[in-house]
């Protein structure tokens, strides 16, 4: 059972730890059940995932789970899966988040984006039972030195992207709905999307050029 208190400072009982990013975490373990009581001052998903990656931190994982697992389940159900298949797949996705945490690179993607790609691939693999052809991976990843500046920019871009989506005109919102929860028509596949992704695209393009340049040296 999980109880999550957001922005409630007095909600904590018993011993607790405060991580360096201001997140107060407490775990109390009884048998197989984890009781996580936490106060989230700031939803710094990147810091939490790095704690999972670097310290196998179960409390940090619990906080990520509380936020993302219901959203993954919601995403899968909206894509047409049953509640039980979606629950099963959401647990599977979150277990993958734990196991693949060492592959997470905050200078490449936000936590939400990374979790989305795992959920998308599991949906194709487990629910649609199809292969997911992936592009050739580029040799950048956690082994490369973490660029704090890049990570911050990615986080900021994602915040502004979320804000931009909230203000989209109805036809563009409808296009996003169809792309993520149904199939686009042939006509839609051939069209421009008109979605406001200009800055994030050019930033990623620049990062790719820098990488290509490094590989040439």
């Amino acid at each position: 059972m999980i109880t999550c208190y957001e922005n409630v400072k007095e909600a904590v009982v018993g011993p607790s730890t405060r991580s360096e990013n201001g997140i107060l975490l407490q775990i109390d373990r009884h048998g197989t059940q984890d009781h996580v009581i936490m106060e989230v001052m700031d939803k710094d998903w990147t810091a939490l995932l790095l704690r999972v990656r670097d310290h196998q931190d179960r409390a940090a994982f619990g906080a990520l789970f509380t936020h993302f697992a219901p959203r993954i389940k919601g995403f899968l159900m909206k894509s047409g899966s049953s509640a039980s298949a979606s629950e099963d797949c959401a647990q599977d996705v979150m277990a993958t988040v734990w196991h693949k945490a060492h592959l997470f690179d905050p200078s490449r993607a936000s936590v939400a984006t990374w979790v989305f790609t795992i959920a998308r691939n599991r949906r194709i693999d487990v629910i649609r039972k199809e292969r997911r052809p992936e592009p050739e991976d580029l040799p950048w990843g956690p082994q490369a030195t973490l660029d704090q500046g890049e990570a911050l920019i990615i986080a900021q871009e994602n915040d502004s992207l979320a804000a931009a989506i909230a203000t989209l005109p109805q036809n563009q919102r409808a296009l996003i709905e169809r792309a993520f929860f149904a199939d686009l028509s042939h006509a839609q596949l051939m069209q421009e999307t008109g979605l406001p992704l200009g800055t994030i695209k050019s930033r990623i393009r620049l990062a790719l050029e820098r990488l290509r340049h490094k590989m040439m040296q």
Partner: peptide
């Protein structure tokens, strides 16, 4: 894909 992250986060 970042848009997908925002869709999940906001969904």
């Amino acid at each position: 894909e970042a848009l997908g992250g925002a869709v999940i986060d906001d969904g």
